[in-house]
């Protein structure tokens, strides 16, 4: 009985150890120190800039359409 218990205990400990080693590396530091928000901010600026450009283009074509109709 005691043998089985120690076997179980040790296999549980090794299992814990394995799951620790299997922890997949992600950009956790970047999230922890908040630098990720800099990246997000930059991407959003580019995105919104391009969308505003698209809206401006849309308006320009609409204006031209009105002009041609006249």
């Amino acid at each position: 009985m005691k043998k089985i218990l120690t076997t179980l205990l040790f296999s549980f400990i090794t299992f814990l150890g394995f799951s620790q080693a299997a922890e997949v590396e992600m950009a956790d530091t970047m999230r922890a120190n908040g630098k990720i928000y800099v990246v997000v901010g930059i991407i959003l600026i580019v995105l919104i800039g391009f969308i505003l450009y698209l809206f401006a283009l849309d308006r320009k074509i609409s204006r031209l359409e009105k002009l041609v109709k006249k």
């Binding site: 992600m26 990720i36 991407i43 995105l47 969308i51």
Partner: peptide, 22 residues
């Protein structure tokens, strides 16, 4: 939707997978 996916895509939890990582 674009603003949402850029915010969520970068900030929400994603699965932790080997090789692929982030």
């Amino acid at each position: 939707l674009l603003v949402y996916i850029h915010l969520g895509g970068l900030l929400l939890e994603a699965p932790r997978l080997n090789i692929l990582n982030e």
